[in-house]
């Protein structure tokens, strides 16, 4: 099982992601530069967080047009797995691989804090090591994490079970207070139609080591390891 991390200029979470992947998958991911377009033999592509191309124009807009994204699209069309975190989520929406868009946080402030996420379904390659309704802690660090989509799109996402995670209180209740960036319906992460592409704003990869305060994010990577080994 092979994972690759795509590195755009301005990305800064790729090493955290590499550590989290290596821990669960048992081998280091390949690091791919944004000009690479050969994804042969890769099962899982990860687009990490950061500020690709300085967030110019819109977060993720420039990266979405880069050569490697054509290959990522083809990989997803073949049924390959793709994970986008934070800027990676923004890039996937800008590339049209996930619906909606990430707007400026409703309170205008950059949010750097832990949040709690509720797992909306546990029968996917990304969430199999959680129970449905489980709550886990994840750090968030973003200025543009306010998920937006037209009401009809949101209804479709919910109806099709494509909401992966929602911002919640520690007990799992979804409240306006827990939804600090103002995301539509408290949505923190969504799946593609075939459930093989996941985008989310918070950073599970930054909580996979007891030394850093916990392993709350680890089930995401353990789930992937199990799904890809199968």
């Amino acid at each position: 099982m092979n994972a690759a991390i795509i590195v755009f200029p301005g990305i800064n979470r790729e090493r955290d992601m590499a550590i989290a992947l290596a821990r669960s998958l048992g081998r280091a991911p390949r690091m791919l530069w944004h000009r690479d377009d050969d994804l042969t033999g890769i099962d899982l592509i990860v687009i990490p967080g950061g500020f690709s191309y300085g967030d110019y124009l819109r977060c993720g807009a420039m990266a979405a047009q880069s050569p490697v994204m054509r290959a990522v699209r083809a990989h997803a069309a073949r049924g390959g797995y793709v994970l986008g975190v934070c800027n990676g989520f923004q890039i996937l929406t800008e590339a049209g691989m996930l619906p909606g868009a990430l707007l400026r946080n409703a309170g205008l402030r950059f949010l750097s804090a832990d949040c709690h996420l509720r797992v909306e379904r546990a029968d996917t390659a990304f969430t199999g090591h959680w129970q449905r309704g489980a709550v886990f802690r994840a750090p968030m660090a973003h200025g543009d994490g306010n998920y937006f989509a037209a009401a009809a799109t949101l209804d479709r996402l919910e109806g099709d079970g494509r909401v992966a995670f929602r911002y919640a209180e520690a007990d799992g209740t979804v409240t306006a207070a827990a939804n600090r960036n103002g995301s539509a319906r408290g949505i923190a992460g969504i799946f593609s139609e075939n459930l093989r592409v996941l985008g989310l704003m918070p950073h599970p990869e930054d909580l996979v080591d007891p030394l850093l305060g916990g392993e709350d994010g680890r089930p995401l990577f353990d789930s992937l390891a199990a799904a890809l080994a199968a």
């Binding site: 124009l57 819109r58 807009a61 047009q65 929406t93 800008e94 619906p99 909606g100 868009a101 707007l103 937006f148 989509a149 037209a150």
Partner: peptide, 8 residues
């Protein structure tokens, strides 16, 4: 194609 995101 690039300058505006028609979703928003």
């Amino acid at each position: 194609k690039l300058l505006a995101n028609s979703v928003i």
